[in-house]
Nucleic acid binder design. Sequence first.
DNA 1: CACTTTCTTCAAAAGAGATTGAAATGAAAG
DNA 2: CTTTCATTTCAATCTCTTTTGAAGAAAGTG
Lengths: 184, 184
Amino acid sequence: MADTPEHARARAIGLAAETMGELISFWGFKASMGRIWTLLYLSPGPLPADRIAELTSLSAGAVSMALAELGQWGLVHRAAKLDDRKRHYSADTDVWGIVRRIVRERELRLVGRAVERFGEAIEVLEAARRENPDDEELLFMLARLRGLHDLARIGYRMVERFAEVGKLSLLPIRGRLSAFRGAS
Amino acid sequence: MADTPEHARARAIGLAAETMGELISFWGFKASMGRIWTLLYLSPGPLPADRIAELTSLSAGAVSMALAELGQWGLVHRAAKLDDRKRHYSADTDVWGIVRRIVRERELRLVGRAVERFGEAIEVLEAARRENPDDEELLFMLARLRGLHDLARIGYRMVERFAEVGKLSLLPIRGRLSAFRGAS
DNA sequence: CACTTTCTTCAAAAGAGATTGAAATGAAAG
DNA sequence: CTTTCATTTCAATCTCTTTTGAAGAAAGTG
């Protein structure tokens, strides 16, 4: 089991990248984005696109697209120019910041839309009820629909709070993690 | 815009079911499961499979499979026998209970596995370091990997706490929602 | 038990999403 | 300006998931 340092590094990166890929794809991102981010995160310095393609066995095209998307989320930056002709990329290391940003900009929108749509459904029923005030079934549906609407609103607030909490009450934890930040 | 009560009901169900389908598919379930659950949740009484198929425009086979899966998660029950020959199904209405159960049994496992895998990756590197104690790059990777490991462990605890919190500190909120429970 | 209706299963079709490969675009160097 | 290398784009391809449709198992009925 004990092999050369290069082997060990490659295996460790593979394991971590694969794991992060699964995690992140459960969160609605492409697994390859997670693999690339992890590779960059674990690399001692910025890497050029062709190197990333080699190490992840993805095509140049796929790497380019994944890097673009990672860039839009601020998960990956173009590193300051090297002597090289190629562009080099490195990972944003403020992991909690990343998580908060994504939760804020994605989950929050998603739940927000759901709140709106449930609200619309309620309006539809209320309009119907005005013309037909004692349809029992209508009342029943309205009650349940309001339950869903409330639920979604509560969820919205929870997600909101989560994004804040990351900023505030997790500071001591981030302190522990920050030892590993910015070491690029 | 003001149409018959039947139209209004159908439109409201459609909107709500579609919305829930999107929400739930973001959480890794099939959208059709969300649609079916919503339909049952909003219906005044249990429905038979063929009716569900009609209303969701899914095939009998798809409905059967979706109901089985919903049943395994406890999201849908077979209702006490009617006079009818068919089986009738109704939705579990304890929505918070459902959410907690799913979070506990799915997200928690997922994050738990990630914690393990990051741990393995760390072990691989540590073994390599024992034979090669001052490889700088190895140390760097180990530090970053420990960051990911810590992060996953913190995430694990957060998910754990969420599943508990649902049970404990949200009781007042559930009180508000329980007006809509068990009204089947 | 035979007959009818309902339910489940599963191979194949359809659909969605991700990836490739190659052509087009862009950027640096001579 | 031309050449060369790097990057982006996008239609075609591949892969994975979901849905269908039909066969057969199960359950209810007389």
